[in-house]
Amino acid sequence: MGIIKARKLVHEYIRRDEEGNVESIQTALDRVDLDVKAGEFIAILGHNGSGKSTLAKHINAILEPGEGSLWVDGYDVSDDANIWNVRQSAGMVFQNPDNQIIASVVEEDVGFGPENIGVPTDEIWQRVEDSLRAVGMLKYRTHSPNKLSGGQKQRVAIAGVMAMQPKCIVLDEPTAMLDPNGRKEVLKAVHKLNKEKGVTILLITHYMEEVVDADKVYVMDKGRVVMQGTPREIFSKVDELKSYRLDVPQITLLAHELRREGLAIPEGVLTRAELMEAIERICQSY
């Protein structure tokens, strides 16, 4: 069994008026199936309000499934007895860097998770050091989070999750509030954790450039998984992606447009080098 497995997962937000009568029901997750193997890098794409954040919150047991089932690292999240195990196995990084850092000193914030799960003092120090090093923030350990850039704050938040030694990290739009350099920093750190520490990654985003290196991409719309496959498979369906309020990286779009003009360029071009090669090949044929 994989590290995350969802079967027909349903979640509804029910709004009630003052008398407690149901005013409206909004289906945020609609029979979602998900299979993630340990060590994979998974990206979940979707426009704002597509249900991707709701899915993320289930994996960390912040929300409970309405119907269907979800297992994280073998634990059934619907069982209250498993909550702490689930949260320890699947750490979560949120969108707003300021609203998830608890302490006024970087290292104390990273130590917060281990403190909560009762790790002995000496080991906390070891874990804090290891996690900060893993995200390249060790030299900022005694700094105040307020003085850091957005990208640095997010890396501290990732270190805070790493210090709990999770098997899987769910990142809910971690780069949405960052500038391009901050986005790069965070993605680099996440990829490094995936490769070097074998941590399973679930990256939720709507920046198309960020999913190019993922092992597998899920696309969500109206609470459903509407597309899944490798980045190349997903990006070869430009028009379908656009119908879900998404787009493709500029290079993929250019390749798509040129193909439409009748040039022999394959679908799903992901990088500049690939497109270069394809264009050069065409030129040589003349």
Binding site: K57, N60, I62, W84, R87, Q88, G91, M92, F94, N99, Q100, I102, E107, E108, G111, F112, G113, P114, E115, N116, I117, G118, V119, P120, T121, I124, W125, V128, G160, V161, M164
Partner: peptide, 19 residues
């Protein structure tokens, strides 16, 4: 939410980084 996600569950059973 962020505190809960990091297993915060009140003062019981907590250890200290800097006791």
């Amino acid at each position: 939410m962020a505190m809960e996600a990091r297993c915060y569950n009140g003062g019981t059973g907590r250890t200290k980084m800097k006791p």
